[in-house]
């Protein structure tokens, strides 16, 4: 059988994986602080095979860190860090994770949190608001409870590899790092997902057409093989 069939098969498999990434992006089109994933493709040469055949494959999924659309909520407890900075939160296992979802809430113990994850201040400690106080965040990321300063939100810039942790949390990958930065925040605004429904829909159509083309190629190779068999037939 011709090697080309396997090239086409790999192409079709890569497009199916691409559709999966698009499906995930579109499902999260309304998730605050969600960052779209961008699948990356590369070709590889078969080991010991013919050198001129390039097999396509999905090799990685990068996280698109561009800012998403802004929703003006007017709530003094919603924050949007400037310059693409991330809020630091304590993930379930005690490690630090980062999020752009700035919907702050005080939990039952008075700790500021985002969807159940405790938000950290610049000293690496949770920010505690006294019971029954009304609190807000100012433009410098300072948390004020009843007019008293109780701490400042820790802000980080992610660079290099970024990995997804789910729940709109991100952590730096093996080749990435998180650097503490001085940045302001915008209060009363929230970042929505940065998924562009238009781009995702176009990508979906592209993936499907490419998949169809690869499938067509598989069929063509099959017909070629059949023809080759007929040529060799003696009768």
């Amino acid at each position: 059988m011709a090697d080309g069939m396997y090239v086409s098969m790999n192409g079709a498999a890569a497009r199916a994986a691409q559709l999966e990434a698009v499906a995930d992006d579109l499902a999260n089109a309304q998730t605050s602080g969600f960052k779209a994933s961008r699948p990356a493709f590369a070709t590889f040469l078969a080991e010991g095979g013919q050198g001129q055949l390039n097999f396509p494959a999905l090799v990685g999924a990068a996280v698109d860190l561009r800012p998403g659309a802004t929703l003006v909520t007017g709530l003094p407890t919603d924050v949007l860090p400037d310059g693409g900075a991330f809020l630091a939160v304590s993930a379930g296992d005690g490690t630090m994770a980062f999020t752009r979802n700035g919907r702050l809430q005080a939990d039952g113990h008075g700790r500021l949190s985002v969807l159940g994850h405790t938000v950290l201040g610049i000293d690496g400690q949770p920010l505690l608001v006294p019971e029954g106080s009304t609190w807000s965040v100012d433009g410098q990321g300072t948390v004020l409870a009843n007019g008293q300063e109780i701490g400042r939100l820790a802000l980080f810039q992610l660079s290099g590899d970024v990995e997804r942790r789910g729940q709109s949390l991100y952590v730096p990958g093996p080749n990435g790092q998180a650097l503490a930065v001085e940045a302001g925040v915008r209060t009363g605004e929230l970042e929505l997902s940065n998924v562009s429904p238009l781009a995702a829909a176009v990508e979906m159509i592209g993936a499907q057409r490419n998949f169809d083309t690869s499938m067509q190629a598989v069929q063509t190779y099959r017909r070629l093989d059949e023809r080759a068999n007929e040529v060799g037939r003696t009768r």
Partner: peptide, 8 residues
């Protein structure tokens, strides 16, 4: 680089 695809 890691290859991870979300599940929705």
């Amino acid at each position: 680089s890691p290859l991870e695809v979300g599940l929705g």
